[in-house]
Design a protein around this nucleic acid. Sequence first.
DNA 1: GGTGTGACGCTCA
DNA 2: ATGAGCGCCACAC
Length: 104
Amino acid sequence: MGYFEDIQKAVRRIPFGKVATYGEIARGAGHPGTARQVAWALRDMTAIELPWQRVLGHGGRILLQGESGRHQRQLLEQEGIAFIGLRVDMKRHEFRFARAKRKE
DNA sequence: GGTGTGACGCTCA
DNA sequence: ATGAGCGCCACAC
């Protein structure tokens, strides 16, 4: 079990209609303080089936640039996630992990 | 093992 | 609100 898989599992735990920040994913995966690496890991995960669109930057901002970002927003809106300007309404949609767990 | 890189997060001007 | 600076850490060379 490596870092990559830990992140993958954490992302899968985000329920439909909810979103989580990179930092929250890192914590939920048991690797606090590695938000940046979460983004790195996600790049290679776009190929596999994963709700990567539910992962946002701090404050609910989409960090993907260009068309990818536009696509992400579209996917989120399809899930019924509300936006306030460029940010997701985190009051309504932020998902928080119960606690970091190493083994599943 | 040193160096550069990045879908980050936080502070401060 | 907006942007620069800096700390962070896993990975590929």
